[in-house]
Design a protein around this nucleic acid. Structure first.
Lengths: 243, 243
DNA sequence: CTGTCCAACTTGGTTAGTCAAGTAATCAGG
DNA sequence: CCTGATTACTTGACTAACCAAGTTGGACAG
């Protein structure tokens, strides 16, 4: 199946209908002509028409309602992108072979941590730190994972042994959770004393801190990861697709 | 159409075939059983089988070759993500109503610019600067667009009038080009004298510089944008989908 | 041994038909 | 006037069949 480049009949129907939606001949919120009407208009079989409609549905132009019709959604909005590779790696790369766990345990949530995780100040949280340095990584970083202690029950976050899967994979698997999005917040700040020590930098240096808050479909935080690091002079790169 | 959650016959076929691919029953590089064989195995019509196969093809598990068969591609790799919203805006948001163009003209390419654009040092390039400040933007930035002067022929990049479309949209439209990816490189540095002046910051401050290099399918640079700005204390946020 | 042709297979696309399930409008009865 | 049943429409899914186009392997002639 494809769109415009094929000369197949279904592809022609896709093109005509999409053009009509895009130029407003079928406005947002209106109902598309029924399959029967389109069969007559295009002189095509119902299967061929439905094939074109299914393709438009997948692209986000239409929503089918059984028994009623197909609702025009207008031009599909740009979808929310997937995370950049570095964020993806932070969530999914196995800890094993990927730096050193330098601490794991419980602590009461500070105001900042409480805000991150949407829990009360003082609530016990699990804090797990791992450091990644050396030429195998694009930038030296200290990764600090936070999650509520109650949410960590049944997981291995409080152990210092590195996980054989990504931190998010581990949480989703052990707690049967489903993460749906991640908020990434980037800030510049001075390193803490501990960060200075672990990253072997001066407290006068500037660290790039990226806070990731992973959420479920109700937008509730499941997990937060604070990545703090020193960018190399050449910076760090990411590649994104424009197609 | 969908995958596993439906009880429809085609959905069941999707699940079974995907599971076989994932666990290696159909290894990467092998040919899937033919449609006829699958029709017999599942006791389904060819249309129902093909519907399942088309879905798997769209997910990236299979590649059909007319007359030959369907090649197993294995578990589809993670697709390259689309740019984060802020990068997307830099490329596609219309300049009009979005900051002030503070300079536009020709200059010989410095070594740095030459490297960015894959042109010889000294080659004439168009440099276009726009500043975005104030509460309407998440961070104050100076955007500097660079492209080879020969590539800018027929465009309005050398004018100080703001464009009514995004810079990449303008280039693609006027020059009939197709951009396929963008490399984003993030660095921290001190502001230049001009940046200090335009951004109203001290030369002792740290700017976050994001260099975007937009490329075509041959990985040739079409356009470079240097975004330099001061992060607010709260940082800047992005949202990414994990589904 | 090589080149050509053909049969048998494959996928890509189209058609016509059926049944299931949902929605909405209409009509009859109370 | 209200309610339940019915009818006519819709989409979701499945089936059987056909034609077009591509690939491959085997048979045969030179």
């Amino acid at each position: 199946m494809g769109g415009g480049s094929s000369s197949a009949k279904y592809a022609h129907i896709v093109d005509v209908l999409r053009e009509r939606i895009v130029r407003g001949a079928y406005p947002l919120g209106s109902m598309l002509p029924s399959e029967s009407q389109l069969v007559r208009e295009f002189g095509a079989s119902r299967s061929t028409v439905v094939r074109a409609l299914e393709y438009l549905r997948q692209l986000g132009y239409l929503e089918g309602v059984q028994g009623k019709g197909r609702l025009v959604l207008g031009t599909p909005p740009r979808r929310r992108p997937s995370p950049p590779a570095r964020t993806y790696e932070s969530l999914h790369a196995p800890e094993v072979g990927n730096g050193t766990v330098v601490g794991a345990g419980r602590a009461p949530a500070s105001a900042r941590i409480a805000a991150m995780l949407a829990v009360p100040v003082g609530e016990p949280v699990i804090v797990r730190q791992r450091i990644m340095m050396g030429s195998a990584v694009p930038w030296s970083t200290l990764s600090t994972v936070y999650l509520p202690a109650v949410a960590a029950v049944g997981t291995r976050f409080a152990d210092v042994d590195p996980l054989r899967e990504g931190v998010l994979d581990h949480l989703e698997r052990r707690r049967r959770l489903v993460a749906t999005d991640v908020v990434e917040r980037m800030t510049l700040r001075a390193p803490s004393a501990r960060e200075s020590t672990l990253l072997a930098v001066s407290t006068d240096d500037v660290v790039l801190a990226i806070l990731l808050v992973v959420r479920n479909s109700a937008a509730s935080p499941l997990l937060a990861i604070d990545l703090a690091g020193i960018l190399p002079p050449a910076g760090i790169e990411e590649l994104f697709s424009l197609r």
